[in-house]
Design a protein around this nucleic acid. Sequence first.
DNA 1: TTCTAATCCAAGTAATTGCTCGGAAAACTC
DNA 2: GAGTTTTCCGAGCAATTACTTGGATTAGAA
Lengths: 207, 207
Amino acid sequence: MTGFKPKKWPKQARSKASFDAVIEAAARLLAESGYEALTTNRIAERAGVSIGTLYEFFPDKETIVAVLAERQMARIVERMRKAFADIGDIGPWRGVIHLTEAAVAVMAEDRDVHRALLRQIPFVAHLPAVTEARMAMLDLAQQVRIAAGDRLDLPMPEEDAWLIAQMLYNTILEIALLDVPPAKKKQFTRELARLTYRMAVGRDPMV
Amino acid sequence: MTGFKPKKWPKQARSKASFDAVIEAAARLLAESGYEALTTNRIAERAGVSIGTLYEFFPDKETIVAVLAERQMARIVERMRKAFADIGDIGPWRGVIHLTEAAVAVMAEDRDVHRALLRQIPFVAHLPAVTEARMAMLDLAQQVRIAAGDRLDLPMPEEDAWLIAQMLYNTILEIALLDVPPAKKKQFTRELARLTYRMAVGRDPMV
DNA sequence: TTCTAATCCAAGTAATTGCTCGGAAAACTC
DNA sequence: GAGTTTTCCGAGCAATTACTTGGATTAGAA
């Protein structure tokens, strides 16, 4: 269940290109037609390499998906860390807005890939990279809590953090998947930030 | 995409039993091993009927899943309607608790089936029965809003209802899927209700 | 009973799947 | 340039899949 490592890492430049082309092709196919239509032969064809080359680097189909998920989650975590670092001293209300907007933005970038990975492929949720990403986000929430000091009013910090994380992750993904004009999307994001502030602080933000 | 009706409805009692056995077998197999392992031959075997009998009633595999999803969603909607009717005059705070607990309970009943249906099978989300169920739940939220009168403080009723519904549905499903003792589950449910109240009213419930 | 329609059966089919294998071509090392 | 390793190739295989078909069995109508 855990040993989703490539068969071998590419050593020459051209094989590195093949390796990446396979993962990129898998991502595009997932976004276009979902997991059911994802076959190793199709991946190889889309990547422009032969099926033999594909299996030179990946021991099986699941590993391709696992490596893709790993990269995807790493990208998201890094972006959210950066967004948190950007906050500085703008106050809790604008901080919440900034983080929420950043989350929607990073999700929207590869929304269909992300949806297919986490909403169609059961084993992805149990991948070490994904559970680690979830831990990292909870850790980030913890840092937010500390930065907010005594403004927060959460009587069960651990459970509340988990609940709010659940609520936010799924809703942010849903907003990112929405097919509406950007203005409307921003409206949803803002309102979500406001509801989140209400949840955490117990009253409305002072604007 | 929409024509997921059985090939023909059973007319005798024995065939009605076969029909139901197929759907029940599909549910159990989905819960046990997910959508990837769900094959028509396995369904027939588990149902105790031949593959030929299965195809006597269902034109294809997708229809079996569609009928199952239809029943599942109908059950949930009906239970939530009943829970709402039960509320009476216990006040908004206890009303929110009651509805949240009812939702967790009904989700928990067939949690693995529900998860497989809505988190692994892409086309289920677009089934008429499922979108109708979603509309029914939004309608229920609307009724809650009316019943709560001016206690609520939601500046964008439509968007807020959608956001809160998203947050609640996914989090309730997540709680139902949690593998923790019932007491802990109740704790999460209670706290979720409190956060929800905070979101909708803008301040803590008076207990 | 006789006739008809409903129900059941499971061996079999065509297509697709993930993946292997034997060897050719290209790139590094000396 | 010779030798070694890495990379690439794609025909093809064994297994599995959703689904068909032709006929046996049963239930209900006459």
